[in-house]
Design a protein around this nucleic acid. Structure first.
Lengths: 259, 259
DNA sequence: CCCCACCTAT
DNA sequence: ATAGGTGGGG
């Protein structure tokens, strides 16, 4: 059986909000190391990979591997029933028909309980190779969100060009063109504002802004976002959570005429 | 070539926000004295006149007269990409295809650059006579905005009646009628709250509230607004900016049955 | 000057 | 239902 208690029901709420527009139904794979989710979006351009490590829960118990096939729209509806400070416990039997969500108010004077029916979902398990990226950019997640939104006013796509000096987001559209260039810099007072560029080789790739804007819904999960690029390889957009948990998005670059 | 650096990108943002609903496309006329704009609204009832003097920029350089024909919707999109404290530099060649806007963050760790394609716009240059007005009312811009909004709940038009004692904004509508009367007064502590009436002859004129409310979008540009009236003559609504720069709106009075 | 919460508008 | 804008508070 699974029993996983999350101090912040809010965390799961934000995670699901950030991915529910990309993926309708997917498996939450539970085992003793935590709860994982991997799914491609309908058009197979983007991939979501979530990992909530057992350490992010307290307590966490999962005796056997269980795949919980969940419709994310249903899950969203139920998660909206949590109040801001609620504590969430996820429960499931070993061969479950339903997943059980329990919300407790911090003062434990209110207890809400929901069962969501599960579905069988074909497991297309995706081995994601751990890549060494040519460029790794760490920056404030709100800034990345802002850049993507701004440039979307001009174009469908953005090119991300990274050199030792900085990273340049650029686009062209009907009304004109635009670019935002960030230099790496440290802010000792507010490390959340740091922009860090770790580069082994210059990179330049083009991506769909629609997807990036979508990924940016996760901005509330982490003050910093990590963009990992290598030529010809999907971009990795990572929001790190506590305890090595994470929410990652992969996006295939546009190539040639697509740009 | 033109190169004009504005410490507050925000200023242009507010100016364009205030006029973009009146005018779609217009020329920004640049010469060594600054950047000017004059345009009538589509229905030729209102006229906008902006003057940003060269002294409002630092530095300001404009070798020749250049007319930059800009679509204000495009310009708005680009100005939205400026962050609050950004410094804006406008650049254009002598016979330009595009105008270039550069936003620098105060800490200059971020630099955004946009090109907007220009268009050819027929210059209907409008000689605006410098009039001696019968009544000049200076009042807090937020108060004028509030009055126009309030009265719009009742009617399409407002009469502005100015005597030595004060100014009365009045309207009649289906649900009833309303009026707001201001007496001139000084507040030594907070001169922004002054209401001043400079009158050579009593005036009473009626105007479309829709337009006035529209003009009031400029309220953020200046704490005070100046209303200049003479019988049979368009109302002048002026927002004074630093360095003798200004944003002015003219509105023809309604006459006879129109009221 | 920044952050948060409310509200409105799509 | 969601996202952006506005207004108020720290």
């Amino acid at each position: 059986m699974l029993e996983a208690r999350l101090e912040q029901a809010n965390l799961l709420k934000k995670v699901v909000d950030a991915i529910k527009d990309l993926v309708q139904d997917c498996n939450f794979d539970c085992n003793d190391s935590g709860i994982a989710l991997q799914a491609m979006d309908n058009s197979h351009v983007a991939l979501v990979s979530m990992m909530l490590k057992s350490e992010s829960f307290s307590p966490f118990r999962c005796d056997r591997n269980i795949a919980l096939g969940i419709n994310l729209t249903s899950l969203t509806k139920v998660l909206r029933c949590a109040q801001n400070e609620d504590i969430l416990t996820l429960k499931a039997e070993d061969a479950p028909d339903v997943v059980n969500l329990v919300f407790e108010s911090a003062e434990s004077d209110r207890l809400s309980e929901y069962d969501i029916k599960l579905m069988d979902i074909d497991q297309e398990h995706l081995g994601i190779p751990e890549t060494e990226y040519a460029a790794v950019i760490t920056m404030p997640s709100t800034e990345f969100q802002r850049i993507c939104r701004d440039l979307m006013a001009l174009s469908e796509s953005v090119s991300i060009e990274c050199t030792k000096e900085g990273v340049k987001f650029a686009c062209q559209g009907d009304i004109g063109s635009g670019s935002v260039t960030l230099r790496s810099h440290q802010n000792v007072e507010k490390p959340d504002l740091n922009v860090e560029i770790d580069l082994t080789e210059p990179v330049s790739l083009t991506f769909s802004l629609k997807y990036l804007v979508n990924f940016c819904k996760a901005s509330g999960l982490s003050s910093q976002v990590k963009l990992c690029l290598s030529n010809e390889v999907p971009l990795l957009v990572e929001y790190a959570l506590s305890n090595n948990s994470y929410l990652r998005f992969y996006l295939a670059p546009k190539i040639g005429d697509e740009e």
